[in-house]
Design a protein around this nucleic acid. Structure first.
Lengths: 226, 226
DNA sequence: CGATTGTTTGATGAAAGTCAAGTACCGTGG
DNA sequence: CCACGGTACTTGACTTTCATCAAACAATCG
């Protein structure tokens, strides 16, 4: 599924080369430092942002101060398919780690979509993926228990992070704080801690210095289906 | 926002005229009866379905039997933007009322997207709307209380149903059962009943014979923001 | 090295779920 | 027209899950 999206197309056309030497659709390369807001809700963005390095979160805040993370962005992700056609972002975008991203020219990309069936179908793939992940999140929040939600998040991240490499790695960089896991899964940080502790004592996962290893993916997957 | 989507484009080009007299992209008109499954999860669909009449629900089932309604389809809605490019539906699609829908030729529509910038931007609008609604649902399920979720559902349906007419109507047809409201909002039927009762006794809404009138939209909106 | 930020833990309570029993509301066929 | 059966709605007692709060501890960073 992954790797067919628009991002891959852009990456293949040189998003990782120095911006000056590349396609005219690359506008700028930017840096965001950890824990900083990259875009504010309703802010104008003059380009389509694609993440080169680091993790970001798209988050919504309620009047009472509660927060929900709507999606996580990993390296190689389009910020959101909406940014391709709307110059405003609807939600806050925050850097979870130090982040490097590129802005692509919106008009140029749009024309590209009309002239290249390959680009169009890549874009549609991206849309479908975004909708699919959102559907899964709705299912999580609506009908799954706390431990299932967290298990699914871990498995999802493992797959997304290793889908590029040939071999899915059990150990990967995991910058998420417990409070951020809580805001993704609709729980509280304290309860996330309880669940993670039980995962650890049951030998399902292991943390050490910002990296996570999944010791028993099978049992995690089984748990999700109960 | 609404009315710019692909559906509107198709409707304007005669989706409501008899199928024989119309564009070649119309393949067939179908009927689904209330409470029946229209498409089964993973089933092949040979066309892009657009709802002419009636309500449908896209629903996911968990192994333990619990169910979550991922989205509601009202007259004039594309079933899901995914159907434009994938011939498989990912989830069950069920008729909530008697339903009339049309199947459009997928290849024809896809070519149309490549040749007509207007069609493309309509399609993108549809995507953006679907993602927007899903984001709102995630926010509901993750961070809002039961009464806020139900209030938002009522307000959302009111707006979607009356966005076509000039004047938003306070009273509209409301075929949803309490158990179905529960499956949309991630609650149980019994608890939905509690909340609806309190809405009624507080004079916020009124039910009579499958139609709902919103007596105090302002207070409902206020409740959502608390 | 201190200051900030994150983690761990437990006690307590509220929100929503579960279960069960009863009531109203159909549409159907006699 | 009524009796019947099924479905939806209503209600209350009881339980579970998760939130809230607080306090102590650990880790990280300038």
């Amino acid at each position: 599924m992954r790797g067919l999206g628009l991002c891959r197309l852009l990456l293949d056309s040189g998003v990782d080369a120095p911006p000056s030497s590349r396609l005219p659709i690359v506008q700028a390369e930017k840096i965001g430092s950890s824990r900083r807001r990259i875009f504010r809700s309703r802010e104008e963005v003059d380009g389509v942002p694609i993440i080169c390095d680091g993790w970001i979160a798209v988050a919504a805040y309620l009047p009472n101060g509660r927060r929900q993370i709507l999606s996580l962005g990993l390296p190689g992700d389009l910020l959101s398919v909406g940014t391709l056609f709307e110059s405003r972002v609807n939600h806050d975008v925050e850097a979870l780690t130090p982040v490097r991203y590129r802005l692509f020219d919106r008009v140029g990309l749009r024309e590209n979509l009309l002239t290249s069936p390959k680009a169009l179908s890549s874009f549609v793939t991206d849309c479908a993926e975004e909708v699919h992940r959102l559907n899964e999140r709705v299912l999580d929040l609506g009908r799954r228990q706390a431990d299932q939600r967290i298990a699914r998040l871990i498995l999802e991240l493992m797959e997304r992070l290793t889908s590029k490499r040939a071999t899915p790695a059990q150990t990967f960089n995991f910058p998420l704080r417990q409070s951020q896991i809580a805001d993704v899964t609709g729980l509280t940080a304290a309860y996330v801690n309880h669940v993670l502790k039980s995962f650890r004592t049951r030998g399902l996962i292991k943390f050490e210095k910002r990296s996570l290893t999944v010791l028993d993916a099978t049992k995690l997957r089984w748990m999700v289906d109960q």
